[in-house]
């Protein structure tokens, strides 16, 4: 249970830096000279997962230094690398511990690890294991063979929402700035002379931003396949506009304010849905680059217009609605 709570809070970034394990050779069960050697990162959640999935088995775990980052991201950033593994093999004196010369590597380490170069560097050859730790027992029992079903990544609803928690942590500073900006704008409005006026207008504006944030971070990932466009920013625009319509219908007082809420909500949802690309296992650098160039101007225009509508209506209320 304590580990569960730890797992949730570490995703939210609480105590994130304590989730590193000292690199080196670890024993699971009572391994001998013929036991397999598994290589993994030093993120505590990953090592916990391996211990759970491999309970009751005897094997060696070679933990490499990835600075507490998971296997895939560490491989992408090249801290989980061929040289790092070779260095840890030598430091642990692995050739004296086991008689075989084979390392089982996590498949998702492959962006950083060239298995064909390992043998020359440290005398051990690398075999890529399955993507998921829960397939490891089957992989070991099948004489280190992984079928296509063990080789492909999935992205189920529970996984999509779990990684969304990481986005909450990533967005905390940005949302802090948005909060400050909302109150600053409220200060410029006609209510700026009274504390209640600022608090009301600022909270209203931040509420819209927060709704956009929650839409981009949770609703878009939850309905990822249902929203019929490819670009994440576009998915966010659609979901955010729907959420904005709902907000406007419930809270809006007149059309300029409703339009402002709709545009701001769509812009924020689009921005955060776009950032969710970093949590998915299938977007490419080129693809995300393209959608950012295409949709960031749209987001910016929406925000500028939303702010203008909001301030204009706050100052000139009735004359705006009658005049246009």
């Amino acid at each position: 249970m304590a580990d569960r709570i730890g797992a949730i809070s570490v995703r939210l970034g609480i105590g994130r830096d304590n989730y590193r394990i000292a690199p080196g050779l670890y024993a699971l069960g009572e391994p001998g000279a013929a036991s397999p050697v598994l290589v993994t990162c030093n993120f505590k959640l990953t090592v916990d997962l391996l211990r759970r999935e491999l309970a009751g088995r005897a094997l060696w775990l070679l933990v490499v230094e990835t600075y507490g980052i998971n296997v895939w991201c560490a491989a992408g950033k090249k801290s989980f690398s061929t040289e790092e593994i070779a260095g840890r093999v030598r430091a642990a004196g692995l050739e004296k511990v086991v008689t075989h010369r084979r390392l089982i590597l996590p498949q998702l380490a492959a962006p950083g690890v060239a298995a064909q170069k390992l043998r020359k560097l440290c005398g051990f050859s690398g075999v890529f294991g399955p993507v998921r730790a829960d397939d490891l027992p089957a992989f070991l029992d099948a004489d280190m063979h992984a079928g296509p079903e063990m080789r492909n990544v999935e992205f189920k609803l529970a996984e999509r929402l779990k990684v969304a928690l990481v986005e909450v942590h990533g967005a905390r500073k940005f949302m802090g700035w948005i909060l400050a900006a909302c109150f600053l704008l409220a200060l410029l409005g006609p209510g700026g002379f009274s504390f209640a006026g600022i608090a009301g207008a600022g909270a209203g504006a931040f509420g819209v931003a927060l709704a956009g944030f929650l839409t981009g971070v949770f609703i878009v990932p939850a309905f990822l396949r249902r929203i019929p466009v490819r670009a994440f920013a576009a998915k966010g625009l659609i979901a955010g506009a729907l959420m904005g319509l709902l907000l406007a219908a419930i809270l809006g007082r007149a059309w300029p304010e409703k339009t402002a809420a709709l545009m701001a909500c769509a812009a924020f949802a689009s921005w955060f849905a776009m950032h969710y690309t970093g949590s998915t296992p299938f977007t490419s650098l080129s693809g995300v680059d393209r959608e950012m160039r295409r949709y960031m101007p749209v987001q910016a225009v929406l925000i500028v217009f939303a702010t203008m509508f909001w301030l204009a209506w706050a100052w000139w209320g009735d004359s705006v609605t009658r005049g246009l």
Partner: peptide, 22 residues
Amino acid sequence: CGACALNCPTRAIVVRSGVGCA
């Protein structure tokens, strides 16, 4: 992700690798 290009012994695969993260 670049895994194929890095693990290809004859450089038959070329890709500009990186993370698809906004």
